[in-house]
Structures are given as C-alpha cells and as structure tokens.
C-alpha cells in the first residue's frame, strides 16, 4: 500500500457517484461505518443534535435502493451529480494498522431538470484495509455553508 493507492481510492469513489454506480459504491462501506454531514458549523456531536445526515449501513442501503426504485417520485427524472476534487491530503497513513485518513476539498454539483446547485465541501474519509482492499470506515462531509437553507440535496457528495 502506497499513498497513491489511498488517493486513487478517493478519486474512484467520486467517479462511482458521478456515474451513478451506487450499488458498487455501497459495497465500499464497512458494515459499522457512518456517513456524517453536520448541520452546525464545527458541530461536535452527531447523535444528540440534528445533522443533515448521520447514516449507518441500513440507512445508506435504503438510500441506494430507493434511488433504484420504481416509485421514487422525486427521482423522476433522476438527478445527476459531478465532483471536482482537489488532490486529497493523506493525514493518516498507518500501513501496519491498516488505518488511513484523507482530507479532500471538493466542488459538488447536483442537477435535475433545469436546476443546478453547487456545494463546496471538505470530505474526511476514514479508510481501512480488508483482504488487501480499501474500504470506507467513516466519511464526514463538511459543507462550507452547512447552516444555509437548501432545497433538495438528493444524491451524495
């Protein structure tokens, strides 16, 4: 495992989301991982305060299966998304323990019908290595304007 493997993983995850390969994306996640998108600026507690997202594997699976569903009215027609990401910082690189953490600045665009919205954010990934493959052990997405009023954000940065 070299640093480039970690960086490549972050790029390929963004590509999966942009190409709508959500089922494949879901398989990247460890069963006990959480996807957290705080609501408050510098929010420390994901449990006892409201977040935009704090989802375990059950909720992420539900989210993905709903996107693929027949009666998902808010996805008729479907949204599309697009990530432009900076080269991730690898903040933790512990091959021995199999623990890695990255910090990635992104511009995330989501579009549906005539609407398009741009979100600027930092994604912090906790990764681990299982059977020689990288998996997501946790992901925190900090929107630079997390406390602003939004319309629907339907796909995932």
């Amino acid at each position: 495992m070299i640093r480039d493997d970690i960086i490549d993983f972050i790029y390929s995850e963004a590509r999966m989301l942009d190409e709508g390969r959500f089922t494949e994306w879901l398989a990247l996640w460890m069963p006990d991982a959480h996807y957290w998108m705080p609501l408050g600026y510098n929010q420390a507690d994901p449990i006892n305060e409201t977040s935009l997202l704090y989802e375990d594997h059950f909720m992420l699976r539900l989210r993905v299966e709903r996107l693929n569903g027949e009666r998902t009215f808010s996805q008729k027609p479907k949204s599309r998304c697009h990530h432009v990401i900076q080269r991730p910082f690898v903040d933790v690189f512990d091959v021995k323990a199999g623990i890695f953490q990255t910090n990635t600045a992104m511009h995330y665009i989501e579009t549906r019908l005539d609407e398009q919205q741009l979100l600027a954010l930092t994604a912090i990934h906790d990764l681990c290595c299982v059977d020689g493959k990288l998996r997501i052990a946790g992901k925190k997405v900090v929107l630079v304007n997390s406390d602003a009023a939004f319309g629907n954000i339907q796909l995932l940065p």
Partner: peptide, 14 residues
C-alpha cells in the same frame, strides 16, 4: 428530524 425533515432526507424529498 434528519430522516424526515432535512433537505437531505429521503422522505422530505418526495
């Protein structure tokens, strides 16, 4: 609140 009432909520979306 986040499951039902958030701009990121799969219930709120519909």
């Amino acid at each position: 609140n986040r499951m039902i009432n958030a701009p990121t909520s799969i219930v709120g979306h519909d």
